[in-house]
Amino acid sequence: MDVSGGNSSDGTGGDGGDGDGTRGILSPGAMPDVFRVDRLEPSADLDDLVAVHWRVAWDLPAGREHESLVLSYPAVNVSFEPDGAWVTGPVSGTYRRRLTGRVAVPAVRFRPAAFRSLVDRSVSSLRDRVVPAGELLPLPPAVVDGIRAAPDLAAARPLVEQWLRGLPRRRTDEQAKLDAAVELVERDRSLTRVDQLAERCGRSVRWLQRAFADAVGLPVKQVIRMARLREVAQRALTGDVDWAAVATDLGYTDQAHLVRDFTAAVGTPPARYARSAR
């Protein structure tokens, strides 16, 4: 369930290092005041599988709506919606959603490569797709009903974790290395090319590309690109921005390259986005 479109990924933008969980949400200050996101860390024994538990809720009066746009993180989510439980594969770009009515959805976001340990298929087969969770994972209807009925995230989390502990897993060292590689991209803005990441990981470019396609579900280049775009959007909220300096800092060939890339993803140039976001 994504605040930006369909049954999709964590509408908070995930745990990208910002304290309020809004990283990835474009123009977070424009979100309705009746919109709420709650996030909780996983229990220690599930830390290698789960990135974050989250719950998104809004209550808009009849006739009122809000369109949300999110620069997505590389992750698979399972959300427990009013119409059932859904697996949303990694989103290759931005996601839009028009918010209406009254909705509250608990969900779990997996670590970038961890969902591969639960399924016998490449995660790239789930890219930009929403699939009923029961088609991929053992998920009794009673479990879904119990999680959906939980009054808040604190009540939903133990039910979700009890279900996750019962799933068969095939965790590998390779998946752990890929999770670390994605974390490195999110943390180190000097990593702007696939060959740089491969060198830091001590692997070949070809290995990294194959492994990302299988377990993360997105091309390495796309993961790096979306991390840079989230950083551009975050810096736009800080006030007056030297976009030429930002372009250099994030490894773009020049400011025009940054502007083209951001505009293609968001639909507006970064300077105009900055003015509207403020």
Score class of each variant (00 low, 15 high):
10 D>I: 02
14 G>W: 01
15 D>Q: 08
17 G>A: 09
18 D>S: 13
19 G>T: 09
19 G>C: 06
26 L>G: 09
27 S>M: 09
28 P>S: 02
32 P>R: 00
38 D>N: 12
38 D>E: 15
38 D>A: 14
39 R>G: 09
40 L>D: 08
46 L>Q: 12
48 D>W: 09
51 A>N: 15
54 W>S: 10
55 R>P: 05
57 A>Y: 11
57 A>F: 11
59 D>T: 00
61 P>E: 09
62 A>P: 07
62 A>H: 09
62 A>C: 03
62 A>S: 12
64 R>C: 14
65 E>Q: 14
67 E>D: 15
69 L>I: 07
69 L>S: 10
70 V>E: 11
72 S>K: 05
78 V>L: 15
78 V>N: 12
81 E>S: 06
83 D>K: 04
84 G>W: 08
88 T>H: 14
92 S>I: 06
97 R>Y: 06
98 R>A: 06
99 L>A: 03
101 G>K: 01
101 G>F: 02
104 A>C: 14
106 P>R: 01
108 V>T: 08
109 R>C: 05
110 F>H: 09
112 P>Y: 10
114 A>T: 09
119 V>R: 11
120 D>W: 14
132 P>Q: 03
132 P>S: 00
133 A>M: 01
136 L>I: 04
137 L>C: 08
142 A>W: 08
142 A>G: 05
142 A>T: 14
142 A>Y: 07
144 V>E: 13
147 I>R: 01
162 Q>I: 12
169 R>T: 13
170 R>Q: 15
174 E>D: 12
177 K>G: 11
182 V>G: 14
183 E>C: 03
183 E>F: 03
185 V>A: 02
187 R>D: 14
190 S>C: 04
190 S>V: 04
191 L>Y: 05
192 T>W: 06
197 L>G: 08
199 E>T: 08
200 R>P: 12
201 C>Q: 15
203 R>N: 07
203 R>I: 13
206 R>F: 03
207 W>K: 10
208 L>S: 15
212 F>T: 10
214 D>C: 08
217 G>Q: 03
218 L>I: 06
227 A>V: 01
229 L>D: 11
229 L>N: 11
230 R>S: 04
230 R>M: 07
232 V>D: 07
234 Q>V: 00
240 D>L: 00
249 D>T: 10
258 L>I: 04
259 V>C: 00
261 D>E: 15
261 D>T: 14
263 T>Q: 12
265 A>I: 02
266 V>Q: 04
267 G>N: 10
267 G>T: 13
269 P>E: 06
271 A>R: 11
277 A>C: 10
278 R>Q: 13
278 R>N: 13
